[in-house]
Design a protein around this nucleic acid. Structure first.
Lengths: 340, 340
DNA sequence: GTAATTTTTGCAACCGATTGCAATATCATA
DNA sequence: TATGATATTGCAATCGGTTGCAAAAATTAC
């Protein structure tokens, strides 16, 4: 019997002999409505099984209580952890979360932004794809003062808010660690240099080398997709380098691990022949033997912070004074790089 | 100058000296509108920067083009893979995806369902939490004929559509494999027995034992949260079992791997002393040494299929004739259980 | 008891697209 | 040229809340 028709504020109004306006206000605790009336309204609403129609509200109030997120792909340990952190904050604050993947392509990212724009998200969290060249596709949003916050893979632009770690410093730390272990010929597995994450890690790598007076050798930098296949191919190239390198700093753990497996299969001893440092502190880092030294950075917290900052921005002036928010990272030294 | 006001179909109508109704139809290629007019409308819309207002559409048409998904947690390899598959299908079909996590608790799951209901999702994809006792919280949706599809962790109910694998068979396959390797005293690491996934795997385990004439020994079944900690604690219990078991069938890979690491640290040889089989084909299965034998099942495809089925259901009668959709699984034999 | 305030509530115009039905324009046919 | 058939387009109601402003009711002041 109640399976068909929706209960509206009009129904409640009629039942209580009030106006829809009063009901509307009563439901949201408007102070102009007498306390007692408010209670009557809410009780009746409950009783009748009233359900707020978000579309009617949104249409009128122009707020959607929805936050969008665009990331390269969901299914990596790091990203799913970040999302988990975001979801936590966002849901607790009464927002919904719409997710889409750019699949690492600029085109899909542009489409996703349009979809988010059409969905009238109140704010957007973005980690850029490998191939994103610029951030013009966000302009429509920015023009309408819809806050956009980039995290991890960001774009260097003074008008945006970015949540990141100090990738340069992290790259420096990783490389310096290898150098301090006595390594001199260090390969760097890095990702697409379009992205700050990888460009900065490379920069840190170079800084550490320079500081120790070691010449930068371009042939030791292997740009690759940073997946399993990339790690394997990198290993094959490393095996052919002459003289053999004695260290590897990989920009993520999955490529580092794949690379290690391939090297081990070829009889290379780790860390004795080649010491390895990864990035991300993925669970596999503690499974591979020897355990992988890596840079840990807090994905869950990054998600929480990005989301919190976004929501604050939405609630306030809708334009954040923060330009960059840098989180801490940490070098976790494990057996893959520890020379006894 | 165009930063303030939204362009509506009324603006387009006025500009072209048409009625809003015609514009509305023209924009969606309604056949009653002359082709030429349609083109004029679309061009003008484009030119003026028109943007469909989803809330107005939804309010009127009562369709949201949104699909909800509720899962225990996003950040596991398997789940993020499933979501990736879902996102792929859903986005290609012009739907948005709203995600929320139940964090493995019944209470949060109920809340999430309410949120989804209020968001007026057109359909819902669900994988149940550990502690979910029943599916009454979905009744409001079902009463309104909003399709709900369960995947992986489902509830045995004839009115629902479920996308699963044959967990009983998979458990049987895994256990039989160990038995065929000559193992007789096999521990089973299993999850919360509320959930079909774990209850069925246990059932398969028992079936295989029975078939080989081996008595079921309750002390060999260790119920645990199936995470790293669970695996470690299981290992400690296993080490105290007397006589020592000679096989382990774990209901997921992360617990299997953690358990293996702990056992190895205690000097147990794998597979010689204890052979191990996991479940999920997580990337860590190919990193741990020896590589972990496991049951592979297609998460990405499961997501795609669940999403496709859901969308078809939405488009058609809004009630699917399918009760259960069973996907293939596969035992991948690796070194952790291969006796030379 | 009446005027001046302060509380509460209602009126009615939105928000922007959708859609059944009616009206008009166009074309073919007699 | 009249007439019926068909192709196009418009009218106006509708979806369900929201909100500025006015009106009514309750309270206080004189």
């Amino acid at each position: 019997m109640d399976g068909k028709k929706e209960v509206t504020i009009y129904d409640i109004a009629e039942k209580l002999d009030l106006s829809p306006a009063t009901v509307s206000r009563g439901l949201k605790d408007h102070p102009a409505i007498r306390k007692e009336t408010r209670k009557r309204i809410k009780d009746t609403a409950q009783l009748m099984g009233y359900q707020n129609n978000l579309f009617a509200s949104n249409l009128r109030s122009k707020k959607t209580n929805t936050i969008g997120i665009i990331i390269p792909r969901i299914n990596s340990y790091f990203m799913s952890t970040v999302i988990s952190g975001i979801e936590h904050v966002v849901n607790a604050q009464g927002y919904s979360l719409i997710i889409s993947q750019s699949q690492e392509t600029f085109e899909k990212e542009i489409k996703n932004v349009t979809t988010m724009y059409n969905s009238r998200v109140d704010g957007l969290l973005v980690s850029l794809s490998y191939t994103t060249e610029n951030i013009q596709h966000f302009e429509a949003l920015l023009r309408k003062k819809i806050p956009v916050i980039f995290f991890d893979r960001v774009f260097d632009d003074p008008t945006c808010t970015n949540v990141v770690i100090d990738n340069t410093k992290a790259g420096y730390d990783a490389t310096l660690h290898l150098l301090e272990q006595g390594r001199r010929r260090i390969v760097h597995l890095c990702g697409h240099l379009n992205r700050n994450t990888y460009a900065d890690r490379l920069k840190g790598y170079r800084m550490a080398l320079q500081e120790k007076g070691i010449a930068y050798d371009e042939t030791l930098v292997i740009v690759n997709p940073l997946n399993e296949q990339g790690g394997i191919e990198a290993a094959q190239r490393i095996l052919q380098l002459d003289p053999h390198p004695d260290g590897i700093f990989a920009a993520n753990d999955s490529s580092a691990v794949a690379c290690m497996q391939e090297l081990k299969a070829a009889g290379i001893r780790i860390p004795e022949d080649i010491a390895v440092v990864g990035f991300n502190n993925d669970p596999i880092a503690r499974v591979i033997e020897p355990n992988l030294t890596t840079i840990h950075y807090p994905g869950y917290e990054m998600g929480q912070i990005a989301a919190t900052t976004l929501i604050n921005t939405i609630h306030n002036s809708r334009t954040s004074p923060i330009n960059t928010l840098v989180l801490k990272h940490e070098l976790l030294v494990r057996e893959s790089s520890r020379i006894k």
